[in-house]
Design a protein around this nucleic acid. Structure first.
Lengths: 352, 352
DNA sequence: CCGCTTCGTCGAAGCGCTTCGACGAAGTCT
DNA sequence: AGACTTCGTCGAAGCGCTTCGACGAAGCGG
């Protein structure tokens, strides 16, 4: 392993000159620069990351803290990660993912106070999130994906659930649906303060009320069985429902299964829209699901950009931004068989 | 941020003594140790990871290099990651995931030569994998998940595809199936030298031949449409097939959809077994899929243990180990409607 | 042509830690 | 009892880099 010293000797300059060539923090003549670069190439020199980090007090490593549970990561999350990694690379940082279990905030505190990470992006933030507190105490620059309850002081990037739900509902209403049921995450998830579940619940109520319709929400366990149960509950509460809106990638397969089991066809008898869903998952179902696709890659990019701007720039302003999901019409939505008393809306169509 | 110096001064000992308390590399009297520990607690001292790393020339960070593509990570992969992270933590290491795109081996070389990672676990290894070469050149201790073509010199942990396929085939044969089709990954994947696809192909041929049956394999694109096409191809090649074995978590949903589309019921008309599949995905389908569940968490743990043993122990022996998937019978397998001429086998049953 | 800034380079002082050699005190053989 | 180890501690020398202050050499306005 060649060191900077070796490069300096070979190029017949001082170590500091080599350092300036590497970092560009002071002007270096073109001739000297070339000599140094040649020496580096000849020795196959790679700077030692830890020495740089120690001396400069910045590791140029960003951490992405993601809870890894048994559910796996959807395409949305991986798009997020790749978007973030690409943005970090552009800004001259490395991105590493740390699979912190939700379990142990002490682990997190230790990791963060060891000064190995210049900044942190926190995924799957709860409305009241202990991890946020820990990280703030330690003083690590922080960007959240999702929001805590009190959004005032922190930087975050999140999905615009309000607009996403509004758009999904508008799509169904414009097709002629009037009895729309929203299948949310489980009651336990809601109770634990999971922001997306809470915010979509409120947005759904608002959107339906805005159309003069009655909002019906069902909480479903995150499993196929949960989806089946939820559909049964939905029919119990709204026997004449013609459309299901769901934000539960797992339960939705149970919903589809149960629909088929009841002899109902999608989309002719019941339309289905899946929210915050990746195209890959949407294509898994037959028919492919009309879905609100999450802006995964953009979320990741923007989060990292906000973080690096904070780290490199002098002003430590915060960045708060919402991005809506986009409607992608596939085969699971159509006009209801017997359109309810049409109040408004364009011609129903078969959404290709 | 308190430093070791501060701790030493407060405890009225030398810095080296504090270091020995921290690392346990030399004996320290109980009295001194207590003084030091008290000082650390009082100052809320956390050692600086980069200083330790620079001085000791070991970062105590292990990298898990995982390709992140648009397909997302299944529960198998996340189980792998959590198993690995837990094992690393036990051994006193941090595990970070690096989302290296398959794209750029130079990025990888840079990352690895910066001495930030004490060792590396490489996922999704190809039979001829450029990344392996790069990492070996750089001299980073390495454990593979999967195997290269030449398995002689490297440490690896992999699924025992041979036994897994044998067991899956045995299950179907014992139910009375004789016409079994194997749906593999795509032809392109096979051509690219993806080990699991190649090995299961050979294992399937061997297993079927061993039972005196004819092996039929179909390559399917990793998509629902690919699955549908594969099923059509399967029926073209083996019109009387009664069972499908698949190793393609995405295509399998297309297979199921197409089966339903043809008016065939699972498991009464056709049995389906999904290989290297997590319980979560298996439960998504209706009926839930009989599957060969991959030993994700154990794979991760064993890989990390092999790596840390190599790093901490003196002998640098290599570790090569295969783990089979375990059969979990759910609702997608049963005796065929008209069992073929029974050659052997226990009583067909309905697999709970 | 003198004082002044800017350019390009050097040497040295750390960054916060580990680790080596040394050394007095104590224990252990024989 | 003398010769060795072992124990418990210290001081100092780095690990490989960044960064600060310094300084000769140009460039330049007056």
């Amino acid at each position: 392993m060649a060191t900077m010293h070796d490069v300096a000797r070979l190029a017949q300059v001082s170590v500091s000159t080599v350092s300036y060539v590497l970092t560009g923090t002071r002007p270096i003549s073109q001739a000297t620069r070339n000599k140094v670069l040649a020496a580096m190439a000849q020795l196959d020199y790679q700077p030692n990351a830890m020495a740089r980090g120690l001396a400069s007090r910045r590791s140029r490593i960003l951490g992405l803290l993601m809870p890894m549970d048994e559910r796996g990561l959807g395409a949305t999350e991986t798009a997020f990660v790749t978007g973030a990694a690409a943005a970090a690379s552009v800004a001259g940082y490395h991105l590493v993912l740390s699979p912190v279990g939700g379990g142990n905030p002490d682990d997190l505190r230790r990791l963060a106070s060891q000064r190995m990470l210049d900044g942190v992006v926190l995924m799957e933030v709860q409305l009241a999130d202990e991890r946020v507190t820990v990280l703030q105490e330690v003083g690590v620059p922080l960007v959240l994906i999702g929001r805590t309850g009190d959004t005032s002081t922190l930087s975050y990037v999140d999905i615009d659930f309000d607009q996403t739900v509004r758009e999904a509902v508008a799509h169904l209403v414009s097709l002629g649906h009037r009895q729309i049921v929203y299948v949310n995450h489980s009651a336990a998830t809601l109770a634990s303060g999971y922001g997306p579940a809470l915010r979509t619940r409120d947005a759904f109520t608002a959107a339906m009320t805005g159309h003069g319709l009655e909002p019906v929400m069902i909480a479903a366990e995150d499993s196929a069985a949960g989806g089946r149960a939820a559909l049964a509950a939905a029919f119990a509460q709204a026997p004449k429902l013609t459309a299901v809106l769901a934000m539960n990638e797992t339960a939705i397969f149970g919903i589809l299964g149960e629909l088929t089991g009841r002899g109902l066809s999608v989309p002719d008898d019941v339309s289905v829209v899946s929210m915050v869903t990746s195209p890959q998952v949407a294509e898994l179902a037959t028919p492919a699901l009309t879905a609100m696709t999450s802006p995964g890659s953009a979320l990741g990019r923007i989060a990292i950009e906000a973080l690096t701007r904070h780290l490199d720039g002098p002003a430590d302003q915060r960045h708060q931004q919402l991005l809506p999901c986009t409607l992608e019409i596939r085969g699971s939505t159509a006009a209801p068989r017997r359109p309810a008393l049409a109040t408004s809306g364009p011609t129903p169509n078969n959404g290709g």
